[in-house]
């Protein structure tokens, strides 16, 4: 009994430490995303948040998702963001001062507080029963996460998995079509706009 309690307490301290480190990474990164004037800094703060989420995934024994989070989000999506930021040349500081819509910021603060409060209230009021406690299959402890997840995806979620394959193909084709320059448009004009990259909106007359 006593040794059990000692084991429990010694297990608690690293868990708490990991949780608070991950939570601090998430919150600092998220606040950095929305207060950075430079979009490049926002993207780098986003990396911090994504790593924090990966840390909390590992803390919750979702090992495979933590690895995928780092590879896909931090490795691919943020690099894509940075590439587009550099490509468009919008890596300049943005004025955060004035709003075109008057009183937008106080209304945004009020709305966000309302939403977070209602989410927390709903969560604390709800009865978390659910139906069957294990629809797909339980987590079979550590070191089994990849096998469990793979079995779930390739048996119960096989149709959804095939649909995501189609979705990814559509997304790739759509991105190529969107980013391609059409042959008949005046691409020199587009290049000039891209190089000058001034902030004024230009009427499109072609």
């Amino acid at each position: 009994m006593n040794t059990m309690m000692v084991l429990a307490t010694t297990k608690t301290i690293p868990d708490l430490l990991v949780f608070f480190v991950g939570a601090a990474m998430i919150l600092v990164g998220a606040v950095g995303v929305i207060i950075s004037r430079n979009p490049v800094h926002s993207a780098l703060c986003l990396v911090l948040t994504l790593f924090g989420v990966a840390v909390l995934f590992i803390e919750q024994q979702a090992d495979f998702l933590a690895v995928v989070q780092v590879i896909v989000y931090a490795g691919a999506i943020v690099v894509l963001f940075l590439f587009v930021i550099m490509f468009l040349g919008v890596d300049r500081t943005e004025e955060l001062g004035e709003d075109r819509l008057r009183g937008q910021r106080p209304f945004a603060v009020a709305l966000v507080l309302l939403i977070v409060a209602s989410i927390v209230a709903l969560g604390s009021e709800a009865k978390w029963s659910g139906g069957a406690s294990s629809v797909v299959g339980p987590n079979q402890g550590p070191y089994q996460n990849v096998a469990d997840l793979g079995k779930a995806i390739f048996t119960d979620y096989l149709f959804a998995f095939e649909l995501t394959a189609g979705l990814v193909v559509i997304a790739v084709v759509g991105a190529v079509v969107l980013a391609r320059r059409s042959a008949d448009s005046n691409s020199d004009d587009a290049d000039a706009q891209l190089l000058s990259a001034q902030g004024q909106p230009e009427g499109v007359d072609q």
Partner: peptide, 12 residues
């Protein structure tokens, strides 16, 4: 809930 289905959702 001890159910791997939530992690499969996150994957998708």
């Amino acid at each position: 809930l001890n159910d791997v289905g939530g992690q499969a959702d996150v994957f998708f």
